[in-house]
Design a protein around this nucleic acid. Structure first.
Lengths: 227, 227
DNA sequence: CCATAACTTAAGATTAGTTTAAGGTAGATA
DNA sequence: TATCTACCTTAAACTAATCTTAAGTTATGG
């Protein structure tokens, strides 16, 4: 199975799009005509189609009608025809989205991701926070140190994520506490130092000489190895 | 159940949109602020949300984050900010589409219809989900563990499929419950843990030490053996 | 070297999650 | 229609994880 099929006759643009999508982590195949694209669709399963409207031979609309006879895959059409009628025509034939050329790459990437999410039920965007040998996968709610998972409980995890999102900044205890525990929380600020201690045990090479979570005397803490 | 909720502070535009959607055959409710919209979302089930970005009080991005904590409903954002950054921001928070103001009514109508189609009328294509020794044949609605069929009832099956489609992700109990039981379901969230328990009995090697369905304390569950 | 701040530990309280079983409901069957 | 069956929900008792507190210890800066 391949993630994305791009049907685009302009070879440069096709390659550029393919590279972009690969950089976003998708596997990609490229076809230069409707015929070639349909051929590929018959041979293999694709999760999403990026379909140019203006193609030599059969155009994108015809190709989409053909595809919709047997498949319900997500399709985004791309075209230089910015008039509303072609957009509507594409959507009525069964496209999921329509994007005008020229398009911004980040925008088309976000459209592809949103449609993948909606179709294949990926609820959360995969986000990886990395710093100083620590990686946090916020979608999975898991953290790793040098590739090995760090087992931690909810508050430890929330605290680590907060510190990593603000790495390099000296954060006051009050700010950290309010962010992690919530402002209306009834518990004591003292809990913070307890959690800091537990976190250090788990992520520092030498918890006695913390490098990742540094104490800022009379203020709070700072995440980062200080270079 | 109502088809569409429109959150739009400009009263004239909101009414116009509502009329348009009604003419397309949808039932519509209208809210003039994020707060009012969230209130309505709490009381009733909507199939799709049209969300303005610039709102008094909490803006559309904040409202969307709030909604995504418990719901995976389709959302189209609308904004006069045509810069790519806001589009991308909206999509990353979890919007399905983004439309610039001013928009053509036929275009927004076709977008709504396309997203409704994708979300609710999807032909369930046959699919083989495989992970961690469990295989589910969604065409046949059967599941197997190491090649042997696992006998399970409807809810157990739905739950397993949902978890497997999101393997590796930490999913909140609310999200799982809403996805599997349906948002307008009258039963209690507590049912979820009962079903989790039954599923574990059937798919885990050692149900006392679950590896496939992991508990994410204070959040929900995660499917996957953690590599 | 003192006063204050931060760290660590462990125990108990609290909250969350699991499991069982009983009762209800709807659809199937006779 | 009556009965049966499978499925689903709920409640309650039980178990486990996490959180807070407090007290003793160690570190820091003037």
């Amino acid at each position: 199975m391949t993630d994305i099929l791009i049907i685009e006759d302009n070879e440069d643009l096709g390659q550029l799009l393919a590279d972009l999508m690969r950089r976003e982590g998708f596997s990609v195949s490229l076809a230069k005509s409707a015929e070639e694209g349909l051929e590929l669709l018959g041979q293999e399963v694709f999760r999403l189609l990026l379909l140019d409207v203006m193609l030599p031979g059969r155009d994108g609309f015809e190709a989409l009608s053909e595809i919709r006879r047997s498949r319900d895959m997500p399709v985004i059409m791309m075209s230089a025809m910015t008039d509303d009628d072609s957009k509507i025509k594409g959507m009525e034939i069964g496209a999921d989205d329509y994007i005008d050329k020229p398009f911004s790459f980040p925008v088309i990437a976000s459209k592809v991701k949103a449609l993948m999410r909606r179709t294949y039920e990926r609820v959360t965007e995969k986000e990886l926070l990395t710093a100083c040998g620590i990686t946090v996968d916020t979608g999975a709610r898991r953290a790793y140190k040098d590739g090995k998972e760090i087992g931690m409980n909810g508050k430890e995890y929330d605290l680590l994520v907060y510190l990593m999102r603000h790495k390099g900044q000296a954060l006051s205890k009050e700010v950290i506490f309010n962010a992690v525990w919530g402002e209306d929380c009834c518990s004591e600020l003292a809990s913070l130092s307890v959690y800091i201690s537990w976190l250090r045990d788990k992520i520092e090479d030498d918890p006695k000489k913390p490098r990742l979570i540094q104490t800022v005397y009379r203020v709070g803490y700072r995440f980062g190895d200080g270079q």
